[in-house]
């Protein structure tokens, strides 16, 4: 035990660095989820057959895109995206480069989740917005997002947690992070206690994210009670 604590103290620098790297990758991908995924999901919702602004071709293009991104095995996706990543951030190696495929997946995931959350908003809410003469932007912000807000928070929580998991393999492109630390120092140097400690740390982090998300979602949900 003391031995583990001593080694943890030795690795303090690396541990902190890897936590910062993980935070950076997750921060980027959650940002992409909100800035790209949410608008994408909203478009999917609006343009669907029978939706408030039906555009069948747009819907099927977006739908196909989201399905493709979500169905390619992640490791292959990371590799396949390397040319694009290099073009976008100038390198295919490092934490920023690792954020690119994560951001794509996060956006696609959240697009799907937010579409499904919006589908749960009662049809009458759209009818109300139309009868009040709301324009498209008002329909989205003042009616749909307002009524769906707790579901949107919960599904963003799920996306964030998935990104914690996805980010652990970003060591393959030099992304670093907590998962990479666990593999390099724990698994590869046979310091299993270090690996398990890292896993425990990630479990705690995931629980904290979930707890925060659930609490926030509950506090902004006024639909029943």
């Amino acid at each position: 035990m003391n031995d583990l604590l001593a080694r943890l103290a030795d690795y303090r620098g690396e541990i902190i660095t890897s936590i910062v790297e993980t935070g950076y990758m997750i921060g980027n991908s959650v940002l992409a989820a909100i800035l790209v995924g949410l608008p994408l999901g909203t478009l999917l919702y609006l343009s669907r057959p029978g939706g408030p602004y039906e555009r069948r071709w747009l819907h099927s293009v977006l739908n196909t895109y989201v399905n493709v991104v979500r169905s390619v095995p992640f490791l292959l996706f990371v590799v396949a995206l390397i040319p694009f990543t290099r073009w976008l951030v100038g390198t295919s190696f490092g934490t920023t480069a690792a954020s690119v495929p994560l951001a794509f997946v996060a956006a696609a995931l959240y697009a799907r989740f937010s579409e499904q959350t919006l589908l749960d908003v009662p049809e009458q809410t759209v009818e109300l917005a139309r009868s009040l003469g709301a324009n498209p932007v008002q329909l989205i912000t003042r009616f749909l997002y307002s009524e769906a807000r707790s579901g949107l928070v919960l599904s963003l929580t799920t996306v964030t947690i998935s990104m914690v998991s996805y980010s652990t393999i970003m060591g393959v492109v030099g992304g670093g992070g907590v998962g990479d630390f666990a593999i390099r120092y724990g698994y590869q140097t046979y310091e299993y206690d270090l690996m398990y400690t890292t896993i425990a740390l990630m479990i705690v982090v995931v629980m904290l994210i979930q707890g925060t998300g659930t609490l926030l979602a509950r506090s902004i949900d006024k639909r029943a009670r």
Binding site: Q124, L128, R130, S131, L132, N135
Partner: peptide, 24 residues
């Protein structure tokens, strides 16, 4: 469309299921 929305505001609607915004 814009003018239609404008006119629609002068015609109000009351629904069977009330259609209130639950989070407001």
């Amino acid at each position: 469309a814009r003018a239609q929305r404008e006119r629609r505001r002068r015609i109000a609607m009351v629904f069977q299921q009330f259609n209130l915004l639950a989070n407001s």
